[in-house]
Design a protein around this nucleic acid. Sequence first.
DNA 1: TCTACGTTTCAACGAAAGTTGATATGTAGG
DNA 2: CCTACATATCAACTTTCGTTGAAACGTAGA
Lengths: 119, 119
Amino acid sequence: MDERQALAAFAALGQEHRLRVVRALVTAGPDGLAAGVLAETVNVAGNNLSFHLKELSHAGLITSRREGKSVIYSAAYGGLSDLLAFLMRDCCQGRPEVCGSVVAALSACDCPAGDTAHA
Amino acid sequence: MDERQALAAFAALGQEHRLRVVRALVTAGPDGLAAGVLAETVNVAGNNLSFHLKELSHAGLITSRREGKSVIYSAAYGGLSDLLAFLMRDCCQGRPEVCGSVVAALSACDCPAGDTAHA
DNA sequence: TCTACGTTTCAACGAAAGTTGATATGTAGG
DNA sequence: CCTACATATCAACTTTCGTTGAAACGTAGA
């Protein structure tokens, strides 16, 4: 990931409605949520949400697929990974104790910490 | 970390000069960099940089300390941890394989991956 | 105390982002 | 084909953000 992409991604997340959308999608998992459901969830008008979804999609943070009349959006976990990795790149100049806490914090989610394998 | 703080942090990172400042400070490590050095590094006028530093500081992403005539800024690794943790909270609703890649990406930095201890 | 240096604050301008309402696209069913 | 529904696009307005220049503050040395 280059700076331009990271910039777009962070700017996208720095907006109340968009951050809520991403959080909702991250929580929802790979199955995702329909645009209409998202609109209700984050309490934003449909046309406005569409604008934000486009921006998030363009930033590589979410993906979409059509299912009948609905468009289903889901979190782009790969894009999220790249973004976090970009931010913390070169974090430990020979001092692992510096960024260790950051990795630890992320591992605090339910999933097995260091286990990067596909369970 | 609450949403309001996360919002401020992401918004802060969604700006070219501020993102460069944070990256420079993350790379620099706990020793940090003087405001003047940062101004040269990111190529921003001193008064303008001061504005951005204030915003980053208020967002909990950097800290400052005075050293003689200079003010030294350094990355707030704790704030960064909290931010990333907030974004990925509840990421794996019983499906570790979903967010595993995210943790893995972060562990891709030089420091020992799953090792959260202080080396 | 005076001067030099580094950093910060302030007001004002120009540019960009978010919201709104109306309108268009695309899909499914009668 | 026509209607209903879900989502997307567009133009206009309002607000917010980033930059600039001048000036103030704090610190150190002569």
